[in-house]
């Protein structure tokens, strides 16, 4: 699997695939989403592990994304960290 395929999968999950969609609550310029309920990801710039923890454990009002596979969790974490130019985009 190439990195671009991984990024594409993450972006598709962010905008559509994850249920509920990340875009409802989060602003992320790369995904052209403007949600204002949760933290603005462009300014937060969460590392891979921070995104992964939020997806797996939930955080604040965000509930765990139990339905995502390990591959999907990885792609989504990698995508958000990459799109926001976080310091660590890998586990």
């Amino acid at each position: 699997e190439t990195d671009s395929a991984r990024i594409d999968m993450g972006k598709a999950l962010f905008t559509q695939g994850a249920e509920p969609s990340c875009s409802i609550c989060h602003t992320l310029a790369d995904a052209e989403t403007m949600g204002e309920i949760g933290p603005n990801l462009d300014t937060m710039r969460p590392d891979y592990d921070r995104v992964m923890r939020a997806l797996v454990n939930g955080v604040g009002p965000m509930t765990p994304y139990d339905s995502l596979t390990d591959e999907e969790l990885d792609a989504l974490s990698h995508y958000v960290a990459s799109a926001t130019k976080a310091d660590n985009v890998e586990p």
């Binding site: 590392d47 891979y48 592990d49 921070r50 992964m52 923890r53 797996v56 454990n57 390990d70 969790l73 310091d87 660590n88 890998e90 586990p91």
Partner: peptide
């Protein structure tokens, strides 16, 4: 999954 995360320590 949690154990995997706890072991990574990449950012912390």
């Amino acid at each position: 999954r949690r154990s995997l995360l706890a072991g990574s320590g990449a950012i912390l």
